[in-house]
Write a protein that binds this DNA or RNA. Structure first.
Lengths: 354, 354
DNA sequence: ATATATTGCGCAACCGGTTGCGCAAACTTT
DNA sequence: AAAGTTTGCGCAACCGGTTGCGCAATATAT
């Protein structure tokens, strides 16, 4: 077994035709007679011929390989994003090859270069947290390999990017809570060096400014490592005992915040309302189900893959900046508060349910 | 730009040598003089030469590609498994190419075949839930492509498999709870057609038999679709009002069970103790942290990748059956109960904390 | 019957590298 | 100085396919 892989040449020999004819017969080329095609196909079948795509694509100068580089395999968002990408990629007869940069710019550069070695037809990139500029993607550009940035990006006029409107999502979150009577909201954000965090925070702040609701610096948390969250939360609650709502920027922050609140004995939504940006998974298994601004990983993945494949197949390098629409999903974690009368100190008034 | 990819031939022309010499110079072949090597390397650098791996591997008859086929991108386990695999794969200069079978045997077969097209050097396979035999992997075997089955497998003497000792894990779970005075445990398992579920359940039952603790059929749930869980749980609680512990077989079942318990107002561990098999992520953000039998996805991934690469590089096709060791992680979700005096009906006695 | 079109297939180059073998020049040995 | 080694490089085949072009045989038009 496995002694020798059957090649076109073997088939050619067996049916007494040239390799060229066999190749064309298998490709259903009009130049070949039906009778011959049948004979060839039969032989191929009988010898269980398997074409070698690498040989084929070597000539064709493409690979039908799409590379995805993610900073890490986070359990949130990334899996559903990959699901979406995979769906479209497979539908279009490409294969997805997955790399992890481990949030290292060095790795990211190395991987980008590696994509050229493999002659990937296109690259999907979720930027590492270390990435501050896009110089290292020049290689790809030089080789004419289209690149699409998604989810975590930085400002660029050169590469197509797919994101949600992060600033607007942050703004919508704060507005939603303020509309329901919350005027002291704690916002929990990721590392501010990342554009996604900065934008969501910016929107959050803007909403406060627009409503003229004061926002203390201690109401805005920037969490670099999730282990820090406990201490930060502690301090925030100490500084703002009348806190009535918490907004988390991602699922990751959501589940940990939810946990820490539960541990402190804080009841949701009776004591504190909770709102997040999420792809909807975590909110469904957290109690109570968490109201969130839905950011579908699958949709992001699908859209992105479509766009990349479009670029590949139409050889287009027009730069786009696509925003995925978010939708608000109202579940049970936010309560409506009556606008508070001037407080006389002590604990916040008991909330009332929505 | 991107007009023409620089090839060996271009370099050869530029330095006035043959392709053969250039190839050898770049490969640091001893036949080539140091001076020539320098000249060639310089030219390659200057022309920003990028080797074409597909051409190279065409000749070499391998691809340094390892394929992973998973049924779906579950948010639990799969991401950490991929992380582990990726780590080892990259360390050994392979690339990981990821496919999803969508739990369809047809897809799985198609993908296996596709792996031969790509001349993958090895295949990692988490079986789809539909897969009942391994016939469709024959193609891979015929082409001498090593295959390793992991996590979700079926009985086989032909393919190497990496799992935890599922039966033992189920047994340990039940034993652990019984040791702490729980004699009415609800076991929540996945689809019984899957070996992983059947084994874990078997162990769970065996532990009861060993202790002589009776186990009603209504104490054992088989959840095919997670949406059914709510109804099943309802019925189980109705049938066993004195239930004091719940065991879930996976993270997925854990988080949903945890949610449903919370929704019913069941306090953990005061009213009901909770134990799971898990890779440790979910238990850390559920309140209280869930005691679990740790089944590290990263470790499974790493071990598996190592083994596969070993098979590839030593051309070995010895079949192995590897069991990953699990460890018990005691957190706050299990309480010790005093052995109950004969009950006189009504609700269970109030629990006491561990 | 002759000129023209069509049909069906093979030759050979090509994709971009790698490698066994041969060979001339330079260097050692006796 | 003749013979034997070593050094450094090129020729050409090869991996497994695809494809432009040419050509003979057959079919169609005049």
């Amino acid at each position: 077994m496995a002694g020798h892989r059957v090649t076109l040449k073997d088939i050619a020999k067996s049916v007494g035709l040239s390799m060229a004819t066999v190749s064309r017969a298998l490709a259903d080329h009009p130049d070949i007679s039906g009778e011959t095609k049948d004979r060839v196909r039969e032989a191929a079948q009988a010898m269980s011929y398997i074409p070698n795509y690498r040989a084929r694509y070597l000539r064709a100068k493409h690979s039908r390989l799409i590379a995805l580089i993610v900073p890490e395999m986070n359990m949130f968002f990334v899996p559903s994003m990959i699901t979406g990408i995979n769906r479209v990629v497979q539908q279009n007869d490409y294969s997805l090859i997955v790399f992890q940069s481990d949030n290292s710019i060095v790795q990211e550069r190395r991987l980008a270069e590696y994509c050229t070695h493999l002659s990937a037809d296109g690259v999907l990139l979720v930027l590492s947290s270390e990435t501050a500029d896009l110089q290292h993607l020049e290689v790809l550009h030089e080789f004419g390999i289209p690149v699409v940035l998604l989810d975590r990006t930085i400002d660029t006029t050169k590469y197509t990017t797919i994101t949600i409107d992060d600033e607007d999502a942050g703004r919508e979150a704060a507005t939603y809570l303020m509309d329901r009577g919350h005027d002291c909201i704690l916002g929990i954000f990721g590392d501010q060096r990342q554009r996604i965090s900065a934008l969501r925070q910016k929107g959050f702040r803007r909403a406060h400014a627009e409503r003229g609701v004061p926002l203390a610096e201690t109401q805005v948390l920037s969490v670099t490592i999730v282990d820090e969250l406990e201490g930060l939360l502690e301090r925030a609650f100490a500084a703002h005992p009348h806190l009535t709502a918490v907004f988390t920027m991602t699922d990751d922050l959501l589940v940990h915040t939810h946990y820490l609140l539960a541990r402190r004995g804080v009841r949701i939504p009776e004591d504190v309302s909770l709102l997040s940006i999420s792809d909807g998974e975590a909110p469904s298994f957290l109690h109570p189900n968490v109201t969130h601004i839905r950011h579908s990983g699958i949709e992001v993945g699908e859209r992105t893959a479509h766009i990349l494949i479009g670029m590949i197949e139409h050889n287009s390098d027009a730069m786009m900046d696509v925003r995925i629409r978010t939708t608000l999903v109202e579940l049970g974690s936010v309560t409506v508060r009556r606008r508070q009368p001037p407080r006389r100190g002590g604990r916040a008034a008991p909330p009332e349910r929505a």
